[in-house]
Amino acid sequence: MFSNFDFGVIYASLGYLFWDGMSFTMLVTIVATVIGTVLGTLLAIMRLSGVWILSRLSGAYIDLIRSLPLVLIIFWFYFLVPYVGQWITGAPRPVQVGAVLSTMLTFTLFEAAYFAEIMRAGIQSIPKGQTAAGAALGLSPTQVMVSIILPQAFRNMLPVLLTQTIILFQDTSLVYVLSITDFLGAASKVAHRDGRLVEMYLFAALIYFLISLAASVYVRGLQRRYAIAR
């Protein structure tokens, strides 16, 4: 099979692989990172709030999600979300969500738990004295959080957040179990259709590798720069 390695099949499917597949992978990665970071930060603040019920709820959510494999969570969400939608909106029928939206929701809520733990560490890394100083200046707790603590926490944790994003980028490949066309899904569809699995899988692996490697080299550079700045 290696002796008749066919570059033609890769070349012929490039448009589909990147235009349909990679664009979906990237879309999910970006949406889940952006919204997931926001939700994660809220969860982290809840967890550190000192309000018993809030910190318990947030802690339970974070621990639950982090204890479960992503594959299982993908199944859960795909089947459960329409019913939850029905329950929230009070509609007479389950709400039709569809594969794309459901995937984004799944990854966003999944990643939020991981981003929450990162942001928690970030918030805790800011010396307590700053909170006190902020309060002494007459800032409200919200103002202290938003304009003093969070910017620093975010900046300190940026490399870790980005590393998590690289993991997320790789994890999106698991939507394969739902037959959704992400980059790997596109590659495997072509592989199955044309019986060219060695070529397609090696090519897909190479692309994932190059993107992740480039991103992690960039993150390491960032880390070094920030380490000096600090």
Binding site: Y78, F79, P82, V95, G98, A99, S179, I180
Partner: peptide
């Protein structure tokens, strides 16, 4: 007309949940 891919494993739950 929307199209949603299904597998043997997902078709029945997706039918039940109105997808």
């Amino acid at each position: 007309v929307r199209y949603n891919p299904v597998t043997s494993a997902t078709r029945i739950p997706l039918m039940a949940n109105d997808t």
